[in-house]
Design a protein around this nucleic acid. Structure first.
Lengths: 128, 128
DNA sequence: GGAAGTACCTACATTTTGGTAAGTATCCAC
DNA sequence: GTGGATACTTACCAAAATGTAGGTACTTCC
């Protein structure tokens, strides 16, 4: 889950191939909560519970898990202040901010095109 | 699977929220085979079996299913020539080509940053 | 006649992903 | 001393995504 299985040696470097490490990073960035966390954290620092409130309906489990994944990918920085009650700050790294921008860009494009997509279906599966 | 559950009325239009239709489109575009199909089809027309060979290890089932999803989203056009043996051509629509470009862009960015991401982990979960 | 190619579909099994509920340790307010 | 807040973890489950194996209907090639 956190280690990247190296692709078979003979394989051509196809970024999108399921076995390619970059593919897994992509999955993390576009996963259900990964994307949300990225944009929630863009330009800000939030602590665990703030993030949970910002996202609305995440479970503790998924929030922690997704944050760990993004941290392992070098997208978020975790800083734990050793006090009680615990206080942990999450923020984006430089590449995390970049990733957030890209994900947000893709999402914005989808949103813009949504009318066409939903009504879309210009040619519904025709015979010649 | 093919219909978009409308988000609850009071919900703020968060593009990335799991319940938002745009989110589902995003999922289709970044799904395991969806992304691969988009780039394989970029600028080309391929038939079912050509696509399968191009992707290498897709199952018939997933290929057919993913293609149908993308067709429903207005990303790919399916043209069946009514001959025997069957011959079906798949190609991208205009927004399909756009989507392919964006997905490819994101993938390329991940690939460029991969060295940093993999070795990355600049600050591994520190205490203050 | 038998095998292979075409573009699928269906039922079933497995894998992955996500959710729920509970527990942990410590402190503060009541 | 009970309850809440904090940031998690673990065990267990449900749902979704994906894979496997087989079938279909028709043709051409050997």
């Amino acid at each position: 889950m956190k280690d990247f299985p190296s692709p078979p040696p003979g394989m051509k470097a196809n970024v999108l191939h399921p076995l390619c490490p970059s593919r897994q990073v992509l999955q993390h960035l576009t996963s259900r909560w990964g994307a949300l966390i990225l944009v929630a954290l863009a330009g800000k620092t939030l602590r665990f519970s703030e993030l949970r409130r910002a996202l609305g309906d995440v479970s503790d489990r998924m929030l922690a898990q997704t944050l760990q994944g993004l941290e392992a990918d070098g997208m978020v920085t975790r800083v734990a202040h050793d006090v009680v009650p615990p206080h942990v700050d999450y923020s984006l790294t430089e590449i995390g901010e970049e990733a957030a921008g890209l994900v947000q860009g893709l999402a914005a494009w989808v949103e813009r095109r949504l009318p066409e997509i939903l009504t879309g279906r210009v040619e519904p599966s025709q015979h010649c």
